[in-house]
Design a protein around this nucleic acid. Structure first.
Lengths: 114, 114
DNA sequence: TCTTCATTTGAACAGTTGTTCATATATTAA
DNA sequence: TTAATATATGAACAACTGTTCAAATGAAGA
């Protein structure tokens, strides 16, 4: 299996499973999405936006955090294309930009509730 | 909305969304599941076990990591009831113990692929 | 222009995380 | 019992993460 004489109980099974693994690149991307939702405060932001769009300071009130903290988290979510924003004068409204994420959240909510 | 005079652009929307939020306890549990899958090496372990059960040292070969590192990660996955194990002599076989997690992973794999 | 307000940004800090290494446990065979 | 093997555990460490604070944008109104 490996170059440097690794011990291996069942080489056949190892090879089989190895073939089924997604590419490293894909695994990494999957992990990124899960990581985005793995922080309670970030998840709370996404859950809030699931209901309707909100401006930054309203999200801050909903999540009981500072505007700055929310802004930092929104930048991460924006980078991952999980949320998008639109400007209306001084105010910037954020909303969900990824339907897959909605499904993921609903599924995990289901999991927790049963 | 809050006790200490927090500025709030649209109090009505804030209150609406606030009502739709799951309980903190549930949000925390959801985040825990996502966190379990947010580390690429841990996700790789779960992906491997998605195919079939494996012993610790075979997982180590598949994931190209030390037995110890794998064992530490398996403990986290075991604690979260994501994997289970069975002993057969000296060897301990691990397998997936949570169908919801399988769905979550398949959904995110789908996401990455499209 | 100057001021105000909503949001963003950067640096700094504490807290958390994953891996490594050495050691311990548990099972089997000699 | 002793030796060998598979797995687990604990401490230590570097790397990463989320929040805070102060300061910087950028838009609208005076």
């Amino acid at each position: 299996m490996d170059i440097c004489s690794v011990k291996c109980i069942n080489e056949k099974k190892v090879k089989e499973t190895f073939k089924t693994l997604p590419q490293l690149e894909d695994i990494s991307q999957m992990a990124d999405i899960f990581k985005a939702l793995s922080d309670p405060s970030r998840l709370k932001i996404v859950l809030a936006l699931l209901n309707q769009e909100h401006c930054v300071c309203d999200i801050a009130v909903i999540c009981n955090q500072t505007d700055s903290a929310i802004s930092h988290q929104l930048r991460i979510l924006r980078t991952l294309k999980i949320v998008k924003n639109r400007r209306e004068g001084k105010i910037i409204y954020y909303s969900i930009d990824d339907d897959h994420v909605v499904s993921l959240i609903n599924m995990s909510l289901n999991h927790v509730k049963h």
